[in-house]
């Protein structure tokens, strides 16, 4: 065997290894085939001891099988959306302490590499004498999305459940959507993305957004793969302060994990608003003003989050 063959074999081998390793529930099936556990447990009866001291045998439990409803959809299937739902997000600016946990979690779970950041946290100060505050900014998932309007090939689309996604198997890379988006939420893969190994061999779905592709646009997707499973998006669960609320407008409830509240009441009580209402884009993201703040506003050094500062101090 010459060196080159050896290399490619190794690569192939590693690829399958990672496929197995990168398992979530989905990978489970393949894992079974590849892992050595198979021989040990398969088809075996296991013994359980009951209260009265009898040992009885039950069927071997299997790892939870992937349910078809919950695996990320194909590019065609992803256009449908979850029937009857209308997802909204509420971001409570009064709780944001710029710890960037949301951003890290988003990057990690979407396997984002390079400079593409889907969820940005800005320091906002609109006038000289207005108060500064931190503003996390995901995609607004507008109900009248300007980006979708201008897409020449329906690569970005609006789903029935309110989510705007990008299909990077169809995108032609004209970047018109980036020009059209008044919130600048979109990023472009200028070069071949440095795919993290976990994504090797993973089948692309617009619902997860990875593996990324060179020459295509990507953006925050509201984690529809999680929503499908009844789970909250990664930024919501990662935030230690409960800044992000996610929910279904049709059932008038949003949740940040710890608290679950009526959407209409939350907006009414705290004076919720949307960004740039004047543009008529009808965002699905609502903001609660930065009043009665959880943290005093602290401007970190450039390129440093408040969290880092605390660690140093």
């Amino acid at each position: 065997m010459n060196n080159e063959d050896n290399q490619s074999d190794r690569r192939k081998f590693l690829k399958y290894g990672f496929l197995a390793a990168g398992l979530t529930v989905v990978g489970g099936g393949l894992q079974k085939v590849l892992s050595q556990d198979k021989d040990k447990d398969a088809g075996k009866k296991v013994k359980v001891m009951t209260t009265d001291g009898k040992v009885i045998e039950v069927d071997d439990a299997h790892c939870k099988a992937a349910q078809s409803c919950c695996s990320p959809a194909t590019p065609e299937g992803a256009r449908q959306g979850i029937p009857g739902k209308k997802f909204v997000m509420v971001i409570d600016l009064s709780r944001c302490g710029h710890e960037l946990k949301c951003q890290h979690s988003c990057q990690r779970y979407h396997h984002l590499s390079g400079m593409n950041v889907w969820l940005k946290v800005f320091k906002m100060q609109e006038g000289e004498h207005t108060a500064p505050y931190w503003m996390p900014k995901p995609c607004m998932h507008c109900d009248k999305p300007p980006c979708v309007k201008v897409c020449p090939v329906s690569a970005t689309f609006k789903r029935e459940d309110g989510i705007v996604l990008v299909d990077n198997t169809r995108c032609i890379g004209c970047r018109f959507c980036m020009a059209a988006c008044p919130y600048s939420t979109r990023s472009f893969n200028w070069e071949e993305p440095q795919l993290l190994n976990e994504t090797t061999g993973v089948v692309y779905s617009p619902e997860t957004g990875f593996p990324q592709k060179k020459g295509t646009v990507e953006k925050c997707d509201f984690c529809p793969d999680m929503l499908k499973q009844g789970k909250l998006p990664h930024c919501v669960t990662a935030c230690p302060n409960g800044v992000f609320f996610m929910g279904d407008l049709n059932e008038d409830t949003v949740s940040n994990g710890a608290e679950t509240v009526r959407f209409s009441k939350l907006i009414k009580d705290k004076g919720g608003y949307r960004l740039n209402e004047i543009l008529g884009t009808e965002p699905s993201v609502y903001y609660l003003p930065a009043v009665k703040r959880l943290f005093p506003f602290q401007d970190p050094l450039p390129g440093e989050s408040n969290e880092d500062k605390e660690k140093k101090g």
């Binding site: 890290h104 950041v117 940005k120 008044p182 600048s184 740039n276 390129g303 989050s305 880092d308």
Partner: peptide, 10 residues
């Protein structure tokens, strides 16, 4: 409207 952020920490 059009602001972007990248942090070193990131």
């Amino acid at each position: 409207l059009f602001t972007h952020i990248y942090t070193k920490e990131m």
